[in-house]
Design a protein around this nucleic acid. Structure first.
Lengths: 265, 265
DNA sequence: AGTTTTATTTTCGTTTATGTTCGTTTCACC
DNA sequence: GGTGAAACGAACATAAACGAAAATAAAACT
């Protein structure tokens, strides 16, 4: 006993989904009521459709219907930013204290480097080059800071600008300081990353810089990643929140890599 | 970003939230009264909405309403953006209607092209290249749009990325459509700009594109500027809000430049 | 035929958004 | 610096929307 609205052809599920998305894109939103009438099905059926579409990330559920997903940015990254947030802020502050006014700095992709950007908001006469849109958006608020963005495709996941343009841009500069992060760090003192492309960028940055600063919270010591960026030997200053594993501390010492701990408040 | 107090469920938003944000972005501020009337709900409901949006950092609460948070961008530019705002939106909408899904587009610096970016938020499968940070920040909200930024120094005044990197980046692409604005337009149909550097960029864009769209409101007819970008002859479609001066209309006609007027609502 | 699977509707208890009321805070004007 | 009006937030009531599960219908497969 299917209730059939006049003019509305009952359409089975597979056909409804694309249609719903189409309407959502055109109107910006959809309502349970409206769709139920449009397709000639019950509210419950529409709810199920919307739940499925929301689960697959194509819509965002609201009371009474659904809307297009707003903040496209990757949730994982937003959450990662909150992870160890206080530690990151402390580390960033310590790092910023070693960045003098008036110098040229590169900040690459990563939540830690974004924290450094925030810590640089009061610095003066800086020249910051970055391949991270978030860093640029943060430092816009510092009027005494020149900002240069590398070109590239915008990766929504983390605001990174990726592609071969990045390295070409970096080659045109010589930085006083490079601030880099890493995805993981192993016991040998090797800096590791998940993304192989970024390794090339990071290596290029190090090569073009007079000094290299590494910012990493302690959680990176426990993790691993496939691609090798460089050795901590090439790092001049290493900012972190907790004491290093014993072996690593000795190695840094012998390499002349200064290790700075951000004090707990 | 997401308020996750008690349960794990991402608290449901309201239909109104995206709308409120859009209004806020357009007008720079929103009032409780205005929104209550606009949506036909009580003040208390609007207050709740604003509180939630403020909690998630998307707005900043003030007595009687809310404003955009950072206030990052240059005030002069923000004011200019409000100038002829409705006209720009209409023009941009008309322009966006002639940009099909799935094509590659360049958007250059200017408030008009930013309006086009906003009008493209619902388009699908686009590839947008731009030298305008604001355009990138706007289109981040369209998950079905690939964004490529040219490199360059960030000019706070207008969010432009300037420098020789821009042209080098553009040369690596061939666009289906170039959307450009201009500072002024004279009676001969020449497009003019205040900034000589940008003229080179604009010319390069035109050369690399299959079609060229010009978006300009009528105020540009009355102004003049020192540098010449090109002639309207090289423009395929010309979007504006009021009828052109007589001589210019004839010229466009003879050049085969389609002129589209955005209808008053 | 019959049987299983899938899709939809129905029902019902629970959750959520909104409106209403009221006491408190903030703003603007004198 | 005081005063009145507007704006605010908290608490409660209500109606709408919700999800889960059982009942029913349609489709698909032997």
């Amino acid at each position: 006993m299917r209730q059939q609205q006049a003019g509305a052809t009952p359409i089975s599920q597979t056909f409804r989904h694309p249609d719903i998305l189409e309407i959502a894109r055109r109107e910006g939103k959809v309502t349970v009521d409206g769709l139920a009438e449009h397709f000639g099905v019950t509210h419950q059926t529409i709810r199920r459709d919307l739940t499925e579409l929301a689960d697959s990330g194509k819509l965002e559920r609201v009371h009474g219907g659904a809307v297009l997903p707003s903040g496209a940015s990757n949730i994982g990254y937003a959450e990662r930013r909150n992870l160890h947030e206080e530690a990151k802020i402390r580390i960033a502050r310590a790092c910023a204290e070693h960045i003098p006014d008036g110098c040229s700095v590169f900040l690459n992709i990563g939540t830690s480097t974004e924290a450094v950007a925030r810590a640089l908001l009061r610095h003066r006469d800086l020249m910051v080059v970055t391949n991270n849109m978030n860093v640029a958006n943060i430092l816009v608020d510092n009027p005494e800071c020149r900002i240069v963005l590398t070109g590239g495709a915008l990766r929504r996941m983390d605001g990174g600008l990726v592609g071969n343009l990045t390295i070409e841009t970096i080659r045109q500069f010589k930085f006083d300081i490079a601030v880099i992060g890493c995805s993981a760090m192993d016991a040998d003192g090797d800096l590791l990353d998940f993304d192989i492309e970024e390794v090339g960028v990071s290596q290029c940055i190090i090569a073009q810089s007079r000094k290299t600063f590494l910012v990493t919270d302690h959680s990176k010591f426990k993790r691993s990643a496939p691609a090798r960026i460089a050795s901590a030997r090439e790092v001049d200053m290493f900012f972190t929140d907790l004491p290093l594993p014993a072996g690593l501390a000795e190695k840094c010492d012998s390499w002349g890599t200064e290790v700075h701990f951000a004090p707990e408040e």
